[in-house]
Design a protein around this nucleic acid. Sequence first.
DNA 1: CGCATTTATGTGTATATACACCTTAACACC
DNA 2: GGTGTTAAGGTGTATATACACATAAATGCG
Lengths: 147, 147
Amino acid sequence: MTEAEAGHNWLKGCTCFRLRRTARRMTQVYDRHLAQVELTLTQYSLLANLVRREPPSVHALAALMGMDRTTVTRNLKPLLARGLLTLEAGADRRSRQVAVSPAGQALWERAKPLWRAAQTEIESRLGREDTADLHRLLDQSFARLAE
Amino acid sequence: MTEAEAGHNWLKGCTCFRLRRTARRMTQVYDRHLAQVELTLTQYSLLANLVRREPPSVHALAALMGMDRTTVTRNLKPLLARGLLTLEAGADRRSRQVAVSPAGQALWERAKPLWRAAQTEIESRLGREDTADLHRLLDQSFARLAE
DNA sequence: CGCATTTATGTGTATATACACCTTAACACC
DNA sequence: GGTGTTAAGGTGTATATACACATAAATGCG
């Protein structure tokens, strides 16, 4: 093994590096499809998680997304600014409810087939079976990291 | 299936959402270990990819990391500011070489066992076999997305 | 009731990510 | 040798991410 390869191997063994690297590439695929409605995959995920659901608090939404609470707060901003979501008074005076507006619902309907096309592209590139395996491993890993 | 579950299923089928969600959690594990040397996993990855290697150009480094070129430029900044890397004249007058400084080399030596501990924690949580499967699937997916 | 604790949220700061656009330098071809 | 093209790099802008910290409201308990 050369010295250069020895250095490189510190990355070869890194689960997180691989995960992030693949996530970067894959995000670009989805974002390119969703660009037609000026949504990112993250924004689409938020919408998708909110439609047809009782408006959750920011806290609950963060838990649903597996995101840091403050990250959710920041990610809501562009959607609120576009009037796709609303942030209204919640059960207490502390909490707030995140709800999809009619405009948000309408945009989600337009975005759905674009997301579908991105997902189909991924499954076509990775293969149906490998995609399913990846889903299972990622879900399991996420659960085991949450413990 | 309830309406709420129907909405949720748009996420259940999303490969990218799962990938990003798991990457977020896993990054936090590595970052907590590496915090002792004030490095993030991304910064550690850059160092690890540069030690014991002929200093690459920014362009070549981006390719090695599977990153966007401009992301690399931005990610180098904190490391350059701390004197862990140097950015010197390259082969042309266009290109620049990214090299690890002695301080960077020394910090990497201190960071290595911390990264090792993080990696061990991950393998312990996910299981050796599942970790290996995940690596294989992620590498394969990354390659197929690059085509 | 009064106070310590817990809970929900937001903000400051720093890094991570990438697209669009610009500049400069090397190269290719007539 | 000039000129169009390609290649390397940086910056502007916007989103994504999360830790530390602050605020305010609900809750629990003596």
